[in-house]
């Protein structure tokens, strides 16, 4: 009888395993961002993945830095399998040794990904971009009829006290200083001209969160400034008189990248998940939901979406100013300190 009982239990378990291979223990744990980003990652990548494989995806919501902190803490026994992190944090994660290299054998769709979106070093490919977003020139179309042609317009006297650029507390703050450094043709490694120029700027605010920038544009406190394409088109979708343009100097951009966690509990499935994110369907879906510039080759989007991509209507990834993050990270502490003393100090 006991043996019989054991047999029944075993077959019941086996049956349960075939019907529901994704019990909580077998679920794939994926770290991604909150809000509409997480929603889009779910419907564009996780849902198709679950449909194809039957594996449930458990999201771990957090910003890139929070995810990095989690990965550092669980270095010895990771529970996360896959992690989305932004450019910049991605390099820090690789330097901390918490990432596993990606291979074309495990993730075949790497072959269809833009070469710019594949990040490798001596260890191999440590990250792959799933879409670009940019910090472009955003303006109030009621106050400014013609799209501004240059970033220099921020310093025009008529916009005094109604301008915004990111503060270093925002993830785009330090990169934006590098961008200004480039368009001002400042001597290599010397940021004094950049800070001198920012001192001349009559800013309403230096935003530390993307929400604060949206709020300022919405209330009319700010009529021109730098803002993420994702945030700007969100405001437009709500019917606000906001325009977004890529000026002649170009725009600074970065991307949301996927990473395979070192010693991930479900490595095989994790690779499959990343592969799903690199399909043209997923990439197109992210472009439509978050206006992320596709990192997958040959993705075509509707004319309406094309207008909202980070590189502007007719641009491509070549119009984006993508940073060497190792360089940025090396100068980060120094630039934040200088900003505090020179700009945010009276």
């Amino acid at each position: 009888m006991a043996r019989m009982h054991g047999l029944v239990t075993a077959s019941a378990l086996a049956l349960a395993a075939t019907i529901a291979p994704a019990s909580a223990q077998d679920a794939l744990h994926v770290a991604w961002y909150g809000g509409n980003w997480g929603d889009a990652f779910k419907s564009c990548v996780a849902d198709p993945f679950t449909k194809a494989t039957g594996v449930t995806v458990v999201p771990e919501v957090g910003t890139s830095t929070v995810t990095l902190a989690k990965l550092q803490q669980q270095k010895d026994a990771p529970t996360l399998d896959v992690a989305w992190m932004d450019g910049g944090v991605s390099e820090l994660a690789e330097a901390d040794g918490v990432l596993e290299p990606l291979t074309e054998a495990g993730v075949p769709n790497l072959a269809n990904t833009l070469p710019q979106a594949i990040y490798k070093n001596d260890n191999g490919i440590y990250a792959v971009g799933t879409g670009y977003y940019s910090l472009g020139l955003t303006y109030n179309t009621k106050e400014i009829k013609e799209p501004p042609a240059s970033w220099n317009d921020l310093w025009k006297p008529e916009y005094a006290d109604a301008v915004t650029i990111p503060s270093p507390a925002n993830s785009s703050g330090v990169p934006f200083l590098f961008f200004l450094h480039k368009i001002l043709n400042a001597p290599a490694g010397d940021f004094a001209p950049v800070f001198a120029r920012i001192k001349e700027l009559k800013a309403a605010l230096f935003f530390d969160s993307s929400g604060a920038a949206s709020n300022a544009f919405q209330s009319g406190e700010v009529v021109i400034g730098a803002h993420f394409n994702v945030g700007a088109f969100d405001l437009m979708a709500k019917g606000l008189p906001i325009g977004f343009t890529v000026p002649k100097e170009g725009v600074w951009a970065t991307d949301a990248r996927l990473h395979l966690v070192k010693n991930a509990p479900h490595k095989e499935m994790a690779q499959k998940f990343i592969d799903t994110a690199l399909t043209p369907e997923a990439s197109k879906c992210l472009a439509e939901k978050l206006f992320l510039g596709p990192s997958v080759k040959g993705v075509t989007v509707s004319a309406e979406t094309a207008r909202k991509l980070p590189w502007g209507e007719k641009g491509s990834v070549d119009n984006l100013y993508l940073l060497n993050w190792t360089e940025v990270n090396a100068k980060r502490a120094e630039l934040v300190d200088t900003w505090n003393r020179e700009i945010a100090h009276k």
Partner: peptide, 23 residues
């Protein structure tokens, strides 16, 4: 942080910066 518009620094903002953007 919100009402200073990034133009005035209080101590908690310095702490946040070190954790969130300088690491």
């Amino acid at each position: 942080a919100l009402l200073s518009g990034g133009q005035i620094t209080v101590f908690s903002m310095l702490i946040f910066q070190q954790y969130s953007s300088v690491f």
